[in-house]
């Protein structure tokens, strides 16, 4: 267990977070510059476009206390970087993200492989504060930075046959060492119905707390669907496909009786291991009531009109 005690050190000896982050940014910039020199791109462009200048603040806000950045970045599930909830932060450095490109294919008029820079270029970034509810019964409030997924999909023009959107995480056991073991069938896959994907609350995030996504949070590009359990919000995306059939999704494939395709936050549908009526907000000792659709029912319940949500859970 990490246990350190040095009475000579006081709070004044702690490196200020800003300085710590500045150093990290410097290291990252240095790494990008090196990669750029080798591969011949302009590191400033990567920084500016992957980066967080000109973010429109307050696009979506929430009158709830933000979960501190330390908790947001040190606790979570990203099985590709280890199955413990504190593993991803420890193994994060393995996930080298430059260069990064995303394949857009399937039922779209303009399929292709797009560099991250080109993918992000047309989209103004905005800050959206969302609740995040994990199927395991814990939750956070996170200020994401991203843009609506729908805006991206429109650029590639879905064909009339495109009824679902399928996503895939990078599959590379060198950079995602957790994939060396077949805990789930890699690559991680997720999917949405097209109307869910086009919903204005559904975003692709590239940052949180005014910074580029930390590796463990799904760098460089991840989905955020705030009314669904967290496992739907797939990380480190390399492929987005429009499909006619409902796509296979990883946790559903692993245990279909436990994890549905829709996975809408629903206190009325119990899970065999986790009580879903309540949740523990990280930072609090006691549990609070879980809200239907994670509190976004007003905006999204209409998507499911007439569906039996205990059957399509």
């Amino acid at each position: 267990m990490p246990f350190r005690w040095n009475p000579e050190l006081g709070p004044e000896d702690v490196t200020p977070e800003a300085m710590f982050q500045e150093r990290r940014r410097f290291l990252r910039a240095a790494a990008v510059a090196t990669a750029g020199a080798v591969l011949g791109w302009d590191p400033d462009a990567v920084q500016a476009e992957g980066g967080l200048a000109g973010v429109r603040k307050g696009a979506v806000t929430l009158d709830e206390k933000l979960t501190p950045v330390r908790e947001v970045t040190s606790y979570g599930n990203f099985y590709e970087l280890g199955t413990g909830k504190e593993d991803p932060a420890k193994l994060a450095d393995r996930l080298v993200t430059y260069p990064w490109s995303v394949r857009i294919d399937g039922e779209v008029e303009q399929p292709g492989v797009v560099s991250l820079e080109d993918l992000l270029k047309p989209h103004p970034l905005e800050e959206r504060v969302y609740r995040m509810r994990c199927v395991e019964g814990w939750s956070m409030v996170i200020p994401w930075i991203g843009f609506p997924l729908g805006d991206l999909l429109k650029r590639f023009v879905p064909t009339p046959k495109g009824r679902y959107v399928a996503f895939e995480t990078l599959h590379d056991p060198q950079r995602l060492p957790g994939q060396a073991r077949e805990v789930l069938r890699w690559p991680y896959r997720e999917g949405l119905r097209l109307d869910e994907a086009m919903h204005p609350l559904t975003i692709l995030a590239v940052g949180l707390y005014d910074r580029v996504l930390p590796n463990q949070n799904g760098v460089p590009l991840r989905l955020v669907v705030p009314w669904k359990y967290g496992f739907k919000s797939i990380k480190s995306i390399v492929r987005i496909s429009l499909t006619e059939q409902q796509p296979v999704t990883s946790w559903n494939q692993h245990a279909p009786d436990e994890y549905g395709f829709f996975a809408n936050v629903n206190p009325e549908v119990p899970h065999p291991r986790w009580e879903q009526r309540q949740e523990r907000r990280i930072g609090e000792w006691l549990r609070r009531d879980t809200l239907p659709f994670n509190g976004y029912g007003e905006q999204v319940a209409g998507l499911y009109a007439g569906m039996d949500l205990t059957r399509f859970f």
Binding site: F3, R70, E86, W285
Partner: peptide, 9 residues
């Protein structure tokens, strides 16, 4: 407070 983000767990 060294039990991480979710001390109850």
């Amino acid at each position: 407070n060294t039990l991480g983000a979710n001390p109850v767990e």
